[in-house]
Design a protein around this nucleic acid. Structure first.
Length: 605
RNA sequence: UGGGGCGUGGCCAAGUGGUAAGGCAACGGGUUUUGGUCCCGUCAUUCGUAGGUUCGAAUCCUGCCGCCCCAGCCA
């Protein structure tokens, strides 16, 4: 990866190091396990791991699982796998995990009881043959959090409130109007302690009481108006089962989880900026003895033609608009992986986009640029005809077969060459033949000579049509035996070189052409009363079943990438490919100047 | 009309008082056995706007305008 850019967050981190406020850097990536990770998360991951990497620190992976009604283990598994994939070979040495089942230690800091849990990297664990690792979980801290809550009550900074949700809502006031204080605000400490303990033991039904911070009901920042810290939910949790019926709210759990893990910099997106005073209030109210984490915010990533809302992505899955969370049209990391996007290209893209605080909408073309750039230098070339048109070379001997040399990767000499069989009947792309060529069309048409890549120059002599439909079913041509390999001894030029596959040697494969899922730049921009699904593109997936591929592709391994020359980059689908029957997903097309010319011609004829 | 943020080319984005980096896109040209790659060139007299300070302002000050976030017992 090229030189790292400096941004306002790195500047803050550097200052903290310079001033000695912190001795090392520990960041964290804290997804809620209620959906799959998407390209927007990739930005947060690259920032948090990138900073850990830059300053030789750690980035803890933590499931922010404080709301059992929305979360599921399916998601903790996918999230863990996606992160590992994204950072592999780049920041794996910074990945902070913990031994399975690990809980915070009770430690003593200057005579005060405190909680702390250390991180372990996969490499460290392997070196010590330690038990297997897993991510951190906010739910691992429920006991510690409970004790911190007790301490807050003892300090007179939290109280049990009996108002209903509706009442609390009404009493909160409005942004421009102060709220009213809870009738239970002045409850004695002992009573608060007693009630809170009984909340834990399950004495009260859902919603009956909450634990609230005692701050300021007339604060201009509404998050400081005695926010709820704990709510009652008699619901079993995917990690803690039925052990708890009270669950901490985000604001209470997050800062303290950061603190327990020794996080130095808690980097999140802009919408949490207004929560920052509360984040700091909690740490300060408890007068926690170790270094306090510092929250800083950056603008989240938006990309044209895609949506990032986990709720909406879930709908696409549930309503069957896509085949699942990893459908290659989805903006999820698992979908991009299955589509063939290299993790490194995603990282390069995120880095190029930068880190700032202004709202942004990055064009999808920018992402595609980095995917192409990465694939261009790393991917072997191969010939595949997706929409075959039969060509008979009339003067080529009936039974003859030649093995011709083809370059595997012009960008990488060490990739070597391979043999490609050639014979009298071949397939070319339907797009590469026009009976009546439009202006500037350089490919095959009657009387025109083109080069068959690595083979011979051929000239079209005739067109065979289906008498019933008029459809072109075959092209007749002659070849110049002196041009073997595609060279022209007499130095004559042809305008075009096209790809081909020998008919009798070709293998069949299913090829899936993916396009944008949405037809408009901003899918959320909808008329009154309609939602984003109206902007779903009508043909975002085209499945081709009669593709003819060069025989070397019979050995394509699931998960391998190719450039189908002149068409695009393709990924051998790891799920649906079988030995001898590969399935290819189009990752991204090659840039297509001809398509652009054609579009222009059609626009202003 | 409360609080918190943000406004630099079509899209990202540097710039931190000394006279507007870079990438993508677009456009023009060259090389080319991929209409790919690569290479060259064009693309902001101007930084939301109006004033002010200064020899000098995208950078400092003031007013105005615009956009985003916040009133979940979601995160």
């Amino acid at each position: 990866m090229n030189e790292e850019r400096r941004d306002f967050i790195r500047e803050i981190v550097q200052q903290d190091l310079d001033s000695g406020r912190v001795k090392n850097v520990v960041t964290r990536f804290p997804p809620e396990p209620n959906g799959y990770l998407h390209i927007g998360h990739a930005k947060a991951i690259c920032i948090n791991f990138g900073i850990a990497r830059r300053y030789d620190g750690r980035c803890n992976l933590r499931m922010d699982d404080t709301n059992p009604t929305k979360e599921d283990v399916e998601y903790v598994e996918s999230i863990t796998a996606d992160i590992k994939w994204l950072i592999e070979g780049w920041a794996d040495h910074c990945l902070g995990l913990k031994p399975i089942g690990g809980l915070p230690d009770r430690i003593d800091v200057d005579g005060r009881e405190d909680f702390y849990i250390a991180s372990v990297t996969p490499a460290e664990s392997a070196a010590q043959q330690s038990p297997a690792l897993e991510p951190f979980f906010a739910s691992d801290y429920f006991e510690a959090l409970y004790e911190y809550a007790l301490e807050l009550i003892r300090r007179g900074k939290a109280y049990v409130c009996d108002h209903t949700a509706e009442e609390v809502d009404q009493m909160r006031g409005a942004p421009d109007r102060p709220g009213r204080e809870s009738a239970y605000r002045e409850r004695p400490v002992e009573e608060n302690l007693d009630l809170f303990r009984r909340m834990r033991t399950g004495e009260f039904p859902d919603g009956a009481r909450t634990l609230r911070a005692k701050i300021d009901m007339s604060a201009p920042n509404v998050w400081l108006r005695d926010p709820v810290l704990y709510r009652i939910r008699h619901t079993s949790h995917h990690q803690t089962g039925d052990r708890w019926c009270i669950y901490p709210m985000y604001d209470f759990a997050h800062g303290l989880s950061d603190y327990i893990e020794g996080i130095t910099h808690s980097l999140c997106s802009l919408e949490f900026e207004v929560h920052r005073p509360l984040y700091e209030w909690i740490l300060e109210a408890l007068e926690l003895p170790r270094v306090h984490p510092r929250q800083r915010e950056f603008a989240r990533l938006n990309v044209t033609y895609t949506i990032m809302s986990k709720r909406k992505l879930l709908r696409l899955v549930q309503e069957g608009h896509v085949r699942g969370w990893d459908d290659p049209r989805m903006p999820t990391l698992s979908a991009m992986r299955r589509r063939g996007y290299p993790a490194e290209a995603i990282r390069t893209f995120v880095q190029a986009v930068g880190v700032a605080k202004r709202e942004n909408m990055v064009q999808i073309e920018y992402l595609e640029h980095f995917v192409r750039e990465n694939l261009n230098r790393s991917t072997p070339r191969v010939m595949a005809v997706l929409r075959p048109l039969r060509v008979v070379i009339e003067n080529y001997p009936e039974e003859q077969v030649e093995e011709l040399d083809a370059v595997n990767n012009p960008e990488d000499a060490s990739a070597g060459t391979r043999k490609v069989p050639f014979s009298r009947v071949i397939y070319i792309e339907q797009d590469d033949f026009r009976e009546v060529p439009p202006p500037k069309y350089h490919r095959l048409s009657p009387g025109v000579e083109v080069r068959l890549r690595y083979a011979y120059l051929i000239t079209c002599t005739d067109v065979v049509k289906d008498p019933a439909t008029g459809e072109i079913v075959e092209v007749r041509a002659t070849y110049d035996p002196a041009t073997r390999g595609g060279d022209t001894p007499d130095g004559r030029k042809v305008k075009s070189t096209i790809h081909w596959v020998s008919a009798k040697h070709a293998i069949d494969a299913e090829v899936r052409l993916y396009d944008r899922l949405f037809s408009v730049e901003d899918p959320d921009d909808t008329p009154e009363g309609e939602d984003f699904t109206r902007n779903l593109a009508s043909e975002s997936l085209e499945i081709l079943r009669d593709g003819k591929l060069e025989p070397s592709l019979a050995a394509a391994k699931p998960g391998s990438r190719y450039q189908f020359e002149r068409l695009g980059y393709f990924f051998t689908d790891p799920e649906d490919s079988h030995p001898g029957a590969p399935v290819f997903n189009r990752t991204v097309t090659l840039k297509d100047t001809w398509a652009r010319i054609e579009r222009r011609q059609n626009r202003r004829p």
